[in-house]
Amino acid sequence: MIPAAWAMLRKDLRIELRTRESAPAMILFSLTVFVLFHFGVRRDEIDGALASGVLWVTVLLAAVLGVNRLFASEREGRALDGILLAPVDRTAVYLAKAAALFLYLVVLEVVAVPAFAILLLGPGLGGALPELPLILLVADVGLAAVGALVAALAAEARARDVVVPLLVLPLYVPLLIAAARATEPLLTPHPGPHGLAKWLGFTGVYDTVFLLVAVAVFDYLLED
């Protein structure tokens, strides 16, 4: 299963490197959203809960773009039939797609978080290291686990572009709560008590539950 998933992932990354359709779009989108927030909240510099919320809502919205595009190449060429002809476990498809989404999210954050610090953040990122990358990585696992499942779920729906955000954003709410709470003290000049372990632990539970659920039910999505 792992070699098959690895092969699929390499294929997806090669397509992404050639077409540059997902990750660059997510990055551009996040920069645009920062500009929107700047005018929307009419502040030059933000910190604390507001900064953490703006950062995470932006990441979530950019993730929706990635989820929407995740099965695009398979759909456009009806290539999924070909993949399903291969005698490999269907779960490999899920793992490859989730891994691809995870990598897109990491690329997005490598660019978007420093850009956020330059454009909007008051206190600077110095106080947020090394915790913030850790929070981002743990949350990305959950974003990718749920995102890949929803992408497959919506792949057959007619109103796909509408179904994906409506489905995935409520599912992301627990992650948003935990990640934004964990990030909030890191972006505050004089932070109070820190609940990092609690929120990271919760995010870990979320990741585990949805990875297990997705692996258990994914086979049924790709049956024919």
Binding site: L153, L171, A214, V217
Partner: peptide, 21 residues
């Protein structure tokens, strides 16, 4: 099949969501 997959994922989501909030 798709409706069932949704119902299962969302059913698992209900308790997690309550804990988070």
């Amino acid at each position: 099949r798709y409706a069932s997959v949704f119902a299962i994922a969302a059913g698992a989501f209900v308790p997690i969501n309550f804990v988070a909030v």
